[in-house]
């Protein structure tokens, strides 16, 4: 469908994860991820715990010869879902970095999210309205957006501050 400038765009594909048994602003929340962010969905993983970790950081997991942190996304947002079983999504993020010469570049960060088994691929809903983050009780720093939709409350999580806290970001060039 052409947009306001008459340019025809393909609808953004998303992966939607419904958090069953949770209510935010009286709606069942649905986490939205861009399809390109999701590398794999695993049924089971061997999670090794980390000392001194908060409850949402479940531990570390070996995936394709890499060690990735495993995060309970619902707990990270102060919720807990009820599902028959959990699934694990391998997510990738692109974060700012510096190369050896100090030039700004980008690097790939990955993590594994523990989610409910209610996962569906869908197009980005077009008819939705921005919802008030403050009223939701969720941490604004952990959200990219919050949208009310007839299918549920769409949450676009911001994983960057969690996976790459500011202290780990590169120092700005002086």
């Amino acid at each position: 469908m052409p947009d306001e400038q008459g340019i025809k765009r393909a609808a953004l594909k998303t992966v939607a994860v419904r958090l069953i048994g949770v209510k935010v602003l009286d709606q069942e929340p649905v986490l939205l991820f861009a399809t390109r962010q999701v590398e794999e969905i695993l049924q089971d993983v061997e999670v090794r715990p980390l000392p001194f970790a908060p409850d949402w950081l479940l531990g570390l997991c070996a995936w394709r010869r890499q060690v990735l942190p495993v995060v309970d996304i619902a707990k990270l947002h102060g919720m807990s879902f009820s599902a028959d079983r959990s699934l694990y999504m391998v997510i990738r993020l692109v974060v700012p970095a510096e190369d050896e010469k100090g030039n700004s570049s980008r690097r790939m960060l990955r993590c594994i999210l523990k989610v409910s088994d209610r996962i569906a691929a869908r197009e980005l809903p077009k008819q939705c309205a921005a919802a008030a983050i403050e009223a939701s009780g969720l941490d604004p720093a952990l959200l990219k957006g919050l949208f009310a939709h007839e299918d549920g409350l769409m949450i676009v999580p911001n994983l960057l501050p969690t996976l790459c806290p500011p202290a780990a970001w590169p120092e700005p060039a002086v």
Binding site: P51, R65, L68, C111, C164, A167, A168
Partner: peptide, 17 residues
């Protein structure tokens, strides 16, 4: 990984498979 707690990183700065 940078998400790991500071104390964990002090005790175990590296990880392998």
């Amino acid at each position: 990984p940078p998400v790991c707690p500071r104390l964990a990183a002090r005790l175990c700065p590296q990880v392998t498979i």
